[in-house]
Design a binder for these strands. Structure first.
Lengths: 228, 228
DNA sequence: CGAATATTTGAGGGCTATCAAACTGGGTGG
DNA sequence: CCACCCAGTTTGATAGCCCTCAAATATTCG
């Protein structure tokens, strides 16, 4: 399922995309690199299942990974969509034990896989690594809390408007546009919607000046969209 | 609004209830204590608002605090209910900036208030403090993710059943019971429900052997409840 | 005991999941 | 070059769930 890449300069270049390495001095970054392996996985591959012993945490270098939870029979809920630069399961460095959710590639994906035990052993020696992990955990916690608040407060069109406004680039005085980095069904999962609900949200937003053509989206009036 | 308590042995006893101090050696615990003040606040007092500069993080010693977010006009969503032992806003130690949500006492409350700048300065010297904070962040992140998954997957009766099963003590072979530590409207907020929806969920669960009398709840068959 | 606060119950409606079917676009092989 | 196929997306119809508002009832606290 996973293919391990040879060590080399290509891997180092890829690894530099891991957000968790971004704020580290070279000594600490090198120490973390020594705990890591670059792996690839194909779309729909399962990286790990809820309940398995948590041996590694990951950083997405290319592609997308969804984190999800299973409920009793069949039904599953998406928790988060990880994009390039994002890490996941690093909470196990301190919380230990087993994975609390499953992880599945949603594209041909390249990942850095860090050995949790080795990283934990670095913490006493390199407090800056602890700081980097704390920062990552803090940002994830804040975004999970925001997501929870949005789920409990916003309708589907509001969630979509919020996403568009957070991710668009302004073209002119009031116009803006963006290109979705992934298919709409992944956006639906990210926002906690059925794909049909996302589609309907887009059609509701037409009245607010949103035009959708495939992955390209144009916004005619940013301020109108903010009032949704 | 807040009353500052005199330093003394009573405060030290209270502070020991802060979960974040639990795993620390005495040297580190003492260093953290030196950054803290014990304060009290009355029910409905606002501890801080979303957007204010984040100067302190908190640990609940007695009472309950709700974290919430505001949306445009009037509407607000609860993110988390903090109980004795819980800390909140410690993500600002690394994420910095302003509070990303509001905090309100839901009872007469005693809190430990830690100065974020002072705690941050301790990290280089005391890696164990970093470890304790990482653990706290990790557990909060996991519980926020679980909450998100439950919101997206479970109906109101399922959420209530889940809460009951997680918090009850077994009396006999299949029977169990519990006493809610707070009023039902706080439980409703915690589960992301309107109070009416919680009430209806309880009445649905009667058929699964759940009896509610004020804050006391009896479960006649744990296994039946698990199948909801 | 009475006032204020919680909780329950009823009626109604909005929102989104679900199922089913039509449609789109790009890529394949003839 | 074109017909076909497939995955992704859109549209329609339906139903379930939960929020809202309103009123009745229970509980708590002074």
């Amino acid at each position: 399922m996973n293919r391990m890449l040879m060590q080399g300069s290509r891997e180092r270049a890829l690894l530099s995309r891991a957000g968790i390495l971004a704020d580290l001095e070279s000594v600490e970054a090198e120490a973390l690199r020594a705990c890591s392996t670059v792996i690839t996985s194909a779309s729909h591959d399962i990286l790990f299942q809820e309940g398995e012993p948590g041996v590694y945490f990951y950083s997405v270098l290319e592609g997308y990974v969804r984190l999800f939870r299973l409920n009793g029979e069949g039904r599953e809920a998406d928790i988060r969509i990880c994009e390039p630069g994002d890490s996941f399961a690093e909470c196990l460095i301190q919380a230990g034990g087993t994975y609390r959710y499953g992880a599945q590639s949603m594209d041909n994906t390249v990942l850095a896989r860090f050995h949790i035990g080795k990283v934990r052993a670095l913490l006493a020696e390199h407090p800056q690594i602890g700081t980097a992990i704390m920062r990552s955990l803090s940002l994830h916690l804040l975004s999970a809390m925001e997501c929870l608040a949005n789920d409990r407060m916003q309708t589907a069109p509001q969630r979509v408007a919020h996403y568009l406004l957070a991710n668009c680039v302004e073209d002119g005085a009031t116009t803006a546009s963006l290109r979705l980095p992934f298919p709409k069904n992944l956006l639906a999962r990210k926002l906690g919607l059925a794909p049909e609900a996302l589609s309907r949200a887009f059609s509701t937003l037409k009245a607010a000046g949103v035009t959708v053509r495939g992955r390209f989206i144009a916004i005619s009036d940013v301020n109108m969209l903010k009032r949704i």
